[in-house]
């Protein structure tokens, strides 16, 4: 998009948000480009690959229309990820019980060409793990994704999930325990005495 050229190079989020609120779509486009990958990643890890792109698109559009209500009290990224988080949880809640199927799309992109056995094994183990994560309670899953997979700070997670930091830590602890318990029943991946 040529309009991006008129944006100041290295414009920070505050500048881009201000311009997007004034109707500059190229500024909004720059924000989307900046956070698209993380938005898709978080959505994928909460709702799964099949729905992630739709959730990501809806969340970004909702963010666009909600920009006038963004007061800048929290960083734009936290505000955006709160929308992604809420819409991912809503999408998950709307769905009927989780189809636990090892062919749930997560293995669909394994290329036909031969891969080293260890890589293939790791890929499959990672797919099974992703499914186990999606079986966690939604509030536990979100915190685990944001902390252990996205590496976000507790205060950021508290803002995104609109939960006190103490509860975030508690949820993370329970999520990990829940996951360990689920993995203990999976002798393929756990590899520790049960």
């Amino acid at each position: 998009m040529t309009a991006l050229a008129v944006l100041p190079p290295g414009a920070d989020d505050t500048q881009l948000v201000r311009r997007a609120r004034e109707g500059d779509l190229s500024a909004f486009e720059a924000l989307v480009s900046r956070y698209r990958d993380q938005v898709v990643r978080v959505a994928t890890r909460i709702v799964g690959r099949d729905e992630a792109e739709d959730v990501a698109q809806d969340a970004l559009l909702r963010a666009f229309h909600s920009l006038p209500s963004f007061r800048g009290e929290a960083p734009f990224r936290s505000w955006l990820l709160r929308i992604v988080h809420n819409m991912s949880i809503d999408a998950r809640n709307r769905r009927t019980p989780i189809p636990i199927d090892v062919d749930d799309g997560v293995s669909a992109d394994v290329p036909d060409s031969p891969r080293p056995a260890s890589m293939l094994e790791q890929h499959e183990r990672s797919d099974r793990m992703a499914l186990k994560i999606r079986e966690l309670k939604p509030e536990h899953r979100a915190v685990l994704v944001l902390r252990d997979l996205e590496g976000m700070a507790y205060d950021d997670i508290a803002r995104i999930t609109e939960t006190p930091i103490g509860s975030v830590k508690g949820r993370l602890h329970r999520a990990r325990k829940e996951l360990i318990e689920a993995l203990r029943n999976n002798t393929y991946d756990w590899e520790l005495p049960r």
Partner: peptide, 22 residues
């Protein structure tokens, strides 16, 4: 260790998402 594998596993790319959203 298992979470690190998930972290390093590729997530779907959505190269045309920006265009669609805009």
């Amino acid at each position: 260790e298992l979470l690190a594998e998930v972290r390093s596993s590729p997530v779907p790319e959505a190269p045309d998402l920006t265009d669609r959203v805009v």
